[in-house]
Amino acid sequence: MMAAQSAPAIVVDKLGKRFGTFSALDAVSFDVRRGEIMGFLGPNGAGKSTLIRVLCGLLRPSSGRAVVSGIDITQDPEAVRKRIGYMSQKFSLYSDLSVVENLRFFGGIYGVCPGAINERIRFAVDMAGLQGRETSLVSTLAGGWKQRLALGCAILHKPDVLFLDEPTSGVDPSSRRRFWTLIHELSAGGVSVLVSTHYMDEAEYCMRIAMMAAGRLVALGTPRELRQQSIGGELLELECANIGAAMDLVAKIPGVHDVAVFGDALHLLVDDGAETARAACALLAEHGLPGASARQIAPSMEDMFVHLVRTARAQGAAAGT
């Protein structure tokens, strides 16, 4: 029992999924610990949804293997399904049933025993903050409530692992924040959560982040680790007049790999922050743009993401030739 508790909740080993000649997942490997919240980031079409759908047993993998809650997903998908909860991108409860009717239905389908079902429904209603709306039809609920109800339906049977496929898309910011609080509560209770999102700020809520591009895993680590390592250099923020002209100038400085506009400043990806900062200010002053200031900053998730996707594309293009 102890061994099972310390074993990873999800083990994915060189998992691949092809649709015809298109490779949606390409040898993806990672582990998720018990109680861990693992976020998957990546552009549309990167393979996040495919990964979740394979792990839930909705799609059969083409290669590799995956173990969820100690069970191989291809050997006993039904046993896996008893231990997982799933929330899809699209809201998919019965809108012509009431809150409690939906919960009772999914509870029954998951085989929650009749003695415990009322207590579980109570729990889900409290968690979702749906007290007083138990008999409301789901079609009358606002987006944030629907989403929390969907989460409630997914945890009725006390799953070990939760798969959330872009659960917060189309939900207002305060509801999103509340939703993430719930996820952390579940995680504290020992539930492992694998969540995909394309909101960069949401990545900060995750304990570890996996970045995907073109079906491959391109980075994996804590948000802090990723910010430090994966960007491939140091990041400078350059504030100056006439950003457009400055951008062309600084791009030519040796040791500058990338220049991007962020608000009213430029972000420079460089080898040596301190040296390039001096060189850039001097160069701009020389060209009649004095008063520039450059300072080294910690890269945001967005910086990191843009960089990773670019690198992955470059690699993909190189591999393609």
Partner: peptide, 14 residues
């Protein structure tokens, strides 16, 4: 079409 079929298919239902 609504997506409830997919939601059902991740349950233990056969």
């Amino acid at each position: 079409e609504v997506g409830t079929l997919e939601q059902l298919l991740v349950t233990p239902i056969r």
